[in-house]
Design a protein around this nucleic acid. Structure first.
Lengths: 230, 230
DNA sequence: CACACTATGCTTAGATA
DNA sequence: GTATCTAAGCATAGTGT
């Protein structure tokens, strides 16, 4: 992990693979040592290397025997109960990676939308390629922004009563609007200024074909990408 | 490893220690995954945690069992070849002591059985507290003795043909008799003279309870104590 | 082959929610 | 207790000897 991030797959280059094995084996043994020292636990590891009749073991032959004996004595059912096996480890990794991806996507969307909004505000028009999904995001962001503004106002003037922002515009639905409502709101608000390609708009009445289900519903990699930014 | 380098010693703070264990366990599992993927090797790890009946294992229950099996199959000498630490020294000592113990036990048994046999021969009866294990030893010794006698006879009279000893007694089964056969033989031979406490004899038809598994199978300290004396 | 070096990327201690 | 974040410290891929 230096100079370059290697990808997690079998290293075909023999010399490289052996070098990696050696380095990482050392690293692992060190970690085993550390965890058992720091946490005072029993643990063991066995690593077989090609062309070695003997596996590398930690903490010792006896230690391994002890740990493995203890393990082998357990009833089968109990054994697999709390186990972190390869599969659950993998699925956990995937879950985490998916979460990460989702977050990053959201960050990007947030920035895109913010840019779109600022452009919209300064030009008074929608610029560039704006599809329904983007429009919905924009609507959501506007709602959010308005809500924040409203809250700030309430904080400033505590006894003023109800909201003074957004009601006239028809954009805010109490912050609880669902997707269709957002779009509806946007359409009502900006109908005049819309000269862009709205081929994706299902409300457009046009004979244009629909985008694929997932795209239309803003889903990729099984992740729902609808409004969510904090 | 952030903010501060911790020193490598048991973490006394409970919460901290558990948190560390959890984090590092995850890290270790990941490393195990990586090394086996990158280098295409077989490996396993077992980590016991306090208050957890189950250890975490990698890569799976089966994987650990496999590694365990492979490890346990190695000749003891090979196993300790590449290890030069306290524990391997200890395990070697234990091995030696176990061997010693086994031999001594065998010697004692041999003497006891010889005594029993001579008593049996002189009184024509079984004397003292004779359980099935002792009976089996006795049977084995008789077989051995008869075989020796037979061999001596054959050596003395090389052209005599078949054995002349033991056939009438029904005790010898060609020296290949298994446990039940030994006992059976003894029973047939001495049925008349048996007045002793045979509460342990499962063939006794009585309602007596069986001895514990290990005792019944003549195992102690994990050592099988069945007939063996040279 | 086995080292030593070092820039990167990964792990994780501590803090925070 | 769990989850997340962050920066400090560590592991290590690539390289050179």
């Amino acid at each position: 992990m230096a100079r370059k991030k290697i990808d997690l797959a079998y290293i075909t280059n023999d010399a490289k693979r052996r070098a990696t094995l050696k380095k990482r084996k050392t690293g692992l043994m060190k970690k085993m040592d550390e965890i058992s020292t720091l946490c005072g636990i029993e643990a063991c590891a066995v690593i077989y290397s090609p062309n070695e009749s003997q596996p590398e073991v930690w903490p010792s032959h006896l230690g391994v025997q002890k740990a493995l004996y203890k393990f082998s004595r357990m009833p089968e059912m109990e054994q697999s109960k709390k186990m972190m096996n390869q599969e659950s480890f993998l699925s956990q990794s995937i879950m985490k990676a998916t979460e990460q991806l989702k977050k990053q996507q959201n960050e990007i969307k947030k920035k895109e939308t913010a840019l779109l909004m600022s452009q919209c505000l300064s030009t008074g028009n929608l610029v560039g390629n704006v599809n329904m999904v983007k429009l919905d995001d924009l609507s959501f962001m506007i709602d959010q922004t308005l809500k924040e503004i409203e809250e700030n106002i309430l904080k400033t003037k505590p006894r003023e009563g109800t909201s003074t922002v957004g009601n006239g515009a028809g954009v805010v639905n109490g912050g609880q609007a669902i997707v269709e409502d957002h779009v509806q709101g946007m359409m009502q608000t900006n109908m005049d200024g819309m000269q862009q390609n709205w081929s994706m708009n299902p409300f457009n009445g046009g004979g244009n074909e629909m985008p694929p289900f997932e795209e239309f519903n803003n889903i990729s990699n099984g992740i729902w990408n609808g409004p969510y930014f904090p």
